[in-house]
Amino acid sequence: MNERSTISTGVTPRFSEEALRQIETIFKRYPAERRQSAVMPILHLAQREFGGWLSRESLDYVAELVAMPPIRVYEVATFYTMYNLKPVGRYHVQACTNISCWLCGSDQVMDSLKRKLKLSVGETSEDKRFTLAEVECLGACVNAPMMQINDDYYENLTADKVAEIIDRLP
């Protein structure tokens, strides 16, 4: 179990027209009277639209769209670790250290990332370019060790390879 809380910014975000159209298609996936089912996909979308994380105001805004009590949305957002409840860097570097990755050298991968990014686990660089995270198994175990940066998996890593990958990011 994890304890996670929300942060208020005082700024209420708004979805773009394009995002609002996407939200309409999201609602159509579920029975008309089950709008709450759309909360997870809309939170995912909100996170992409609103800078990679969800503030208290973002959660309240989603609650309004889905017609859920805000507390129910906070419950969902704090339960699922993919919802970032504090700002993250432009590149969210998530290295797996679970069993298969660990057996195949994730300690070296993590050390290399820490050196390269000059960050500890959980930290974001001052220029907001990188956040380093340790994650549980991401399901690419036969290509261990691996990491995820934003939407993409990087597999069969070595300490040298991760440094190169970081260098090549635009």
Binding site: R29, M40, L43, M68, V76, T81
Partner: peptide, 26 residues
């Protein structure tokens, strides 16, 4: 339709998964 999870292992349990599709904690 596809429903994307949010990084909770317990949602692999079938009723946790159902709760999650219903828009709740899994």
């Amino acid at each position: 339709a596809i429903h994307r999870g949010g990084g909770a292992y317990v949602c692999g349990e079938e009723t946790g998964l159902i709760e999650s599709i219903e828009g709740k904690k899994g």
